[in-house]
């Protein structure tokens, strides 16, 4: 039987590796002529290489962050626009609706899509409390992506791209004052030791995907393709999104119970200040897609509509 290589750049105990493993444990026994095995910890390649590796069939299936390969998935990157996404469920709804409406077909032409989902909106983790966007002025922050850095610039801060494992040391040494990131990373990398303030606004978010090599998919027997189809698409994406949102809530509750971390919550006035500070980000995103061959305005408008309906 054929063994399908499932690649994750996250270490085996990481959230997404665990999620993939849970999915494999469910699907693999149902396959008749194939089996699946997880290759965690980036042993099949670094995070930015995952999209190339699955396209070339090195991995049959891979966990991919589409924004790590700047420019390859332009329409998907709409997820990064601030204000669209609070929970993963929202972002996942946006991507799957756009996919069903045919907007994303072109940029995933090389792949068979298993699931498209997103992170929750990223919060601000900082050494010193940040209540208003003006508090970020002059600060250096770890940014999750190039677009995240542009959003930070709009608030007078600068975004520094730092590899995930080195963020802790860079905050400790004051190279950056904090990070715009997910709660999952906050706990995994023990950032609460060096950045004990969490601002409860949501800035950017990241799209996420589980992609399969087209030939690998077509090579499967008809029965196995049916099994895979039954365990992929919108239903899988929503299951993962629920896992993400539950995990986020659990970390949130655990941190609040343990104490030592200051949660800075938003009221109508402070939230309005954040909304205003990132208002220009939408235009910046649209302008950034000028050469991408997509109708960026229409995609953003549709994404807003879906987000509002959630």
């Amino acid at each position: 039987a054929q063994e399908l290589r499932v690649s994750s750049f996250e270490p085996a105990p990481g959230f997404f590796s665990q999620t993939l493993q849970a999915w494999i444990d469910e699907v693999s026994p149902e396959l008749t002529d194939a089996s699946m095995r997880l290759y965690p910890g980036g042993i099949l390649g670094a995070p930015p290489a995952q999209a190339d590796l699955v396209a070339a069939g090195v991995a049959d299936i891979a966990f991919v962050v589409p924004t790590y390969t700047a420019g390859l998935f332009p329409a998907t990157s709409v997820i990064e626009v601030p204000g669209l996404i609070d929970h993963s469920a929202t972002g996942t709804e946006i991507l799957n609706t756009l996919l069903e409406e045919g907007v994303l077909t072109g940029e995933y032409a090389d792949y068979h899509i298993i699931a498209l989902f997103t992170t929750p909106g990223y919060r601000v983790f900082s050494a010193e409390p940040v209540t208003l966007p003006t508090d970020l002025e002059g600060m250096r922050m770890r940014s999750p992506s190039a677009f995240g850095a542009r959003v930070l610039e709009m608030m007078g801060a600068s975004g520094v791209p730092i590899p995930a494992p080195q963020v802790y040391e860079n905050i400790e040494r004051d190279v950056v004052s904090g990070a715009i990131w997910a709660m999952d990373a906050y706990r995994t990398f023990r950032l609460y030791e060096v950045a004990p303030n969490i601002t409860e606004t949501r800035l950017v978010a990241s799209p996420l995907a589980i992609l399969m090599n087209r030939d690998s998919y077509n090579r499967l027997s008809e029965a196995d393709r049916a099994v895979l189809d039954a365990h992929s698409g919108r239903a899988l994406a929503e299951w993962i999104a629920a896992r993400i949102d539950t995990g986020e809530a659990e970390i949130d509750a655990a941190l609040k119970q343990a104490g030592g971390v200051t949660f800075i919550s938003m009221d109508a006035q402070t939230q309005a200040a954040w909304d205003e500070a990132v208002a220009a980000a939408s235009d910046a995103w649209v302008a950034g897609q000028a050469d991408a061959g997509i109708d960026a305005d229409a995609i953003l408008a549709r994404a807003r509509e879906i987000s509002a309906a959630q």
Partner: peptide, 15 residues
């Protein structure tokens, strides 16, 4: 196969 090896060689070198 060849295609996969080309991808591995190239991405590994770049990384």
């Amino acid at each position: 196969g060849v295609e996969g090896t080309l991808a591995i060689g190239a991405t590994t070198t770049w990384e």
